[in-house]
Amino acid sequence: MSDNTRDIASVAERIRPVAVGGSVVGLHFLQRTPVFVLGEEALVLATNDGEPQRCDIHGGAILESAADGKQVITGGDDGKVMSTDAKGKGTLVATDQKRRWIDHVALAQDGAIAWSAGKQAFVRANKAAANEAYKMLEVPSTVGGLAFSPKGFRLAIAHYNGATLWFPNVTGEPERFEWKGSHLAGTFSPDGRFLVTAMQESTLHGWRVVDRKDMRMQGYAERVRSLDWSHDGKWLATSGSNQLILWPFQAKDGPMGKAPQIMAQTGHQVDVVACHPRQPITAVGYADGMVLIVRNDDGAEILAKRPGDAPVTALAWSQDGTLLAFGTESGEAGVLDLS
């Protein structure tokens, strides 16, 4: 299997390029509008017709973004947390008092917002007014990642030697899930039963939330920087290797004792994965700029974007799964209509 001459069906000719004008670091859909998050200062909304709309919202680097279909939340090195809607209107959510970097952001299904600066994690409930006080929790070391549980108002905060699970509305000590090492990103399974973190040492760690039972998922060549759950929550798709890795989470104890599904191998690292919202299909972005659409059942591939001059850094599906958007480190970006 050579990368540049993959002899497979292609939809790459359907790409509608978007001139975003900068390195893409995140990508979300607000209804059917792809929103490209640039490494610096701005979001670019690519409406169906007309020019891409650039929205300058930060005074420096944009460090992380999250979205729920209605708004994109961003954290910047200007110390600001911003919310941007489908019209491109940016609203200030919070400014860090010391103007520290906002390293991580997360968004709950009900619209609650979380962010972190240094060792402090903050949450603001969805019903809180714009200037209403938020709640803060300090963890033992710098926050490595944030994730809201799909069940209840509960935030997981990944950090060195484990993760802290915090019910912001409940007084008392938050729960500590321990595992030695530096935990850099967190995600809950869609049913809320499992919490998975990506670690500094190229492994994933998981806990079954109910009893904190540990699970290790290893064998990666690189640090895992992209994680996504399949539409039915049965599989966790990840980067970190030169193939797509799908860990099985159907069973009561998750992937323990089971091998992952491995597919779509190329000579290049997988940098981003994005699961289709309705079908067992995964979009896979590689370090050479190629994007494949892979069927989880049998590994069948469709070429979505040919290799380019820079790694794919972001992928996203529209909520109905008919549009796939991509962005690269060098600012190449586009949308594919698969309907």
Partner: peptide, 17 residues
């Protein structure tokens, strides 16, 4: 051992390449 803060900060700084 690694400097965890450097991993994070360099990642952020490289957005301003």
């Amino acid at each position: 051992t690694v400097r965890g803060d450097l991993v994070r900060i360099i990642d952020g700084l490289m957005r301003r390449k």
